[in-house]
């Protein structure tokens, strides 16, 4: 809000005065609220990782084989892209707090471009899988195929989790565009940047989720020798 908020004063019986925290202009409250919201993200992805681990326990070999098949080069590139985008986001906020609005805006644009790049690479990956006959409700993932159970579920969750992560990236891009609009409108300023702060936090949690998604899907079967184990058991 653009108006000036003047906190109320409460007085105790000895005449000491205490400033009352109102719901207006509560930077810490806004931050706390957003952290709490991020816990819900953690629980959501936590539950999906729980499902993933559930089936990893039941079909350990299938999981390694399926993981081995994923494209580590593209996945790794995406990891680095997201890592750098976390830096640009953080630096942008830093510039904003230091008073450099123009630099902050540049950094946000950089983050948006990196995010779009991430999504494109993700798209290429999915396309590759599709052409290899692996996609939701398609080819090897259909109930009738003789693909081992463990691999079916691995890919089912792979598409679900990377897909949901992608949705978070898209939401992130939308939020950043909104942020740019708010900065241009003078509603997010060097003094009043809780909105920016929280979007930066959001981008970090998106990155954080990827930090676990990446090794769990791409790397656990990294050194797995194909044919070294019989599929299924």
């Amino acid at each position: 809000m653009s108006h000036e908020y003047i906190p109320e004063i409460a007085t105790d019986r000895d005449g000491n005065e205490y400033e009352v925290q109102g719901w207006q202009d509560d930077f810490y409250g806004g931050k706390l609220g957003f952290w709490l919201f991020m816990f819900t993200e953690v629980m959501m992805f936590g539950a999906m990782f729980l499902a993933l681990t559930y089936y990893k326990t039941l079909h350990p070999e299938d999981f390694l084989a399926a993981s081995h098949h994923l494209n580590r080069l593209l996945g790794g590139t995406n990891t680095v892209i997201l890592l750098i985008s976390a830096l640009t986001m953080g630096l942008g906020l830093l510039k904003m707090r230091a008073g450099d609005v123009k630099g902050a805006k540049l950094m946000i644009w950089a983050t948006i471009i990196l995010a779009a790049l991430f999504l494109s690479i993700k798209g290429v990956e999915w396309r590759e899988e599709y052409e290899g006959g692996i996609f939701l409700n398609y080819g090897k993932l259909l109930p009738g195929s003789d693909f081992p159970f463990g691999e079916k579920i691995f890919y089912g969750l792979y598409f679900t989790m990377t897909g949901l992560h992608g949705v978070h990236i898209i939401i992130g891009i939308g939020l950043m565009l909104w942020l740019l609009k708010r900065i241009n409108a003078g509603k997010v300023t060097t003094d009043h940047h809780i909105f920016y702060w929280n979007i930066a936090l959001y981008w970090d949690i998106v990155h954080l989720i990827w930090v676990f998604v990446f090794p769990y899907f791409y790397m656990i079967g990294g050194g797995y020798v194909v044919g070294g184990a019989v599929h299924g058991h």
Binding site: G76, V211, Y216, Y224
Partner: peptide, 28 residues
């Protein structure tokens, strides 16, 4: 993360998750 599976294979999962936790801690 990339080098690890080619150095040792037993315990890849644990090692990978450990690295992820360290990274997560830095980010947090």
């Amino acid at each position: 993360t990339f080098v690890q599976p080619y150095v040792f294979q037993a315990g890849t999962f644990t090692a990978q998750m450990f690295i992820a936790v360290v990274k997560a801690w830095l980010i947090l």
